[in-house]
Amino acid sequence: MRAAAQNDPQAFVNQIPDGMLVIDEIQRAPELLLPIKASIDRHRTAGRFLLTGSADLLRLERTPDSLAGRAVTLPLRTLSQGEINGRLDDFVTRFVAGVDPFDVRSTVSREDYANLLAAGGYPEVFRRSPRLRAAWFDGYIDRIVQRDARDVRRLVDGNRLATVLRLVAANQAGEVVRARLSRDADVPETTMTAYLDLVETLYLVERIRPWTGNLTTRQAGKAKGLVTDSALAMHLSGVTPARAAALVGGGELLGPLLEGLVVSELRKQQTWSDTRFSVFHYRETSGVEVDVLLELDDGRVLGLEVKAKQTYKPEHFRGLQRLAERLGDRFLGGIVLGTADQGVRFGEKLVGLPIASLWEL
Rank of each mutant, 00 (worst) to 15 (best):
R110Y: 03
L51S: 07
G343D: 07
P35N: 10
F95W: 15
V22S: 05
Q270C: 01
P130Q: 06
G158S: 08
Y122K: 09
E175L: 15
D90W: 02
R128P: 00
A220V: 13
Q310L: 02
T52P: 03
T78A: 14
D90A: 07
D90L: 00
P35M: 09
H235Q: 07
R77Y: 15
V72I: 12
T240V: 12
I335E: 00
G53M: 02
F277H: 08
L60C: 03
E360H: 02
G347A: 04
L254Y: 09
G338F: 03
R150W: 01
V125Q: 09
L257M: 12
A11C: 01
A173V: 13
R154G: 08
Q219T: 13
D197F: 04
R77F: 13
I144Y: 03
K268F: 00
G251P: 07
R180Q: 12
R180A: 11
L226P: 03
K309G: 11
V99I: 14
R183V: 10
G328T: 14
E315G: 01
G98E: 15
Q310S: 12
Q15K: 12
F91E: 01
V22Y: 07
L266N: 11
L132K: 10
L257D: 03
L257I: 06
G255V: 02
R105M: 11
R180S: 12
T201L: 01
Y195P: 11
Q6C: 01
L226S: 05
G334H: 06
E360D: 11
A245W: 07
I144C: 02
L302G: 02
L132C: 01
K309T: 06
F277E: 00
L33M: 14
S129E: 10
L116M: 10
E259N: 00
I355A: 03
A3K: 07
E25K: 04
S273A: 02
D291P: 13
D297T: 06
I40F: 15
L165C: 04
V177L: 13
G19V: 07
K37Q: 15
R70C: 14
I26H: 07
R127V: 05
G213S: 13
G82F: 05
A173T: 11
D24M: 04
